[in-house]
Amino acid sequence: MKTEFIVSDMTCNHCVQTITQAVQAIAPGAAVSTDLDTHRVVIESPADAAALRAAIADEGYDAQLA
């Protein structure tokens, strides 16, 4: 399942790394792709969108479903 978020406060590669690690901590093997220009995070994983959003939020980022 593909889930897409807008993370407006994702601004650098450190943010990308933090978000990727947070997602993969709850969904091992998840494919995470990011675009810093559009602030999009696309996650390919069977994990629930709410759980993915919560993992990103726990790292201090505001993730909104795209």
Rank of each mutant, 00 (worst) to 15 (best):
M10R: 07
Q24E: 12
S45M: 04
Q21H: 15
I43C: 02
H39A: 13
M10V: 07
H14T: 12
A31T: 14
L36C: 09
A31H: 12
A30M: 06
Q17N: 13
P28I: 08
V32E: 03
D35C: 11
R40D: 05
H39W: 09
S45Q: 02
P28M: 11
G29Y: 09
V16S: 07
A27H: 02
S33Y: 06
P28N: 09
C12D: 03
Q24R: 14
H14S: 13
S45N: 01
R40L: 14
V16N: 00
P28F: 10
P46N: 00
V16H: 02
H14E: 06
V41H: 03
T34E: 09
G29D: 07
Q21P: 01
A30I: 06
A25F: 09
T20I: 03
C15V: 03
P46C: 00
A27W: 01
C15F: 05
I26K: 08
P28G: 08
Q24H: 03
S45H: 01
R40C: 04
G29A: 09
C12Y: 02
H14A: 12
A47V: 05
N13I: 00
D35H: 13
Q21V: 08
R40G: 04
T20P: 04
H14C: 03
T20C: 04
S33K: 14
T38V: 07
R40N: 09
L36F: 11
H14L: 09
A22H: 05
V32D: 02
T20M: 04
S45G: 02
E44M: 07
T34P: 04
H14M: 10
V32P: 01
C12K: 06
P28W: 08
V42Y: 03
V16I: 09
V42K: 12
V41Y: 02
I19Y: 12
A30C: 03
C15N: 03
Q24P: 01
T38H: 07
D37E: 15
Q17G: 10
T11V: 11
I19C: 10
S45K: 08
Q17R: 14
I43A: 02
G29K: 09
I26L: 12
T20E: 13
E44V: 13
M10F: 08
D9Y: 13
V41D: 00
V23L: 11
E44D: 15
N13V: 00
C15D: 06
A27Y: 01
V41Q: 04
T34S: 13
A47W: 01
C12L: 02
D37Q: 15
D9E: 12
L36N: 08
V23G: 03
V16F: 01
S33M: 13
T38M: 07
R40F: 13
V41N: 05
V32M: 01
D35I: 09
T38I: 05
T34Q: 11
Q17E: 10
S45W: 02
V42L: 12
R40Y: 11
D9N: 15
H39E: 10
V32K: 03
T38E: 06
D37V: 13
Q21D: 15
I26P: 05
L36R: 08
C15T: 05
V41P: 04
S33G: 06
M10L: 11
T34V: 15
D37G: 15
T18Q: 14
I26T: 05
Q24T: 10
S33T: 15
T18I: 15
H39N: 14
R40P: 00
D35A: 13
T18E: 14
D35M: 08
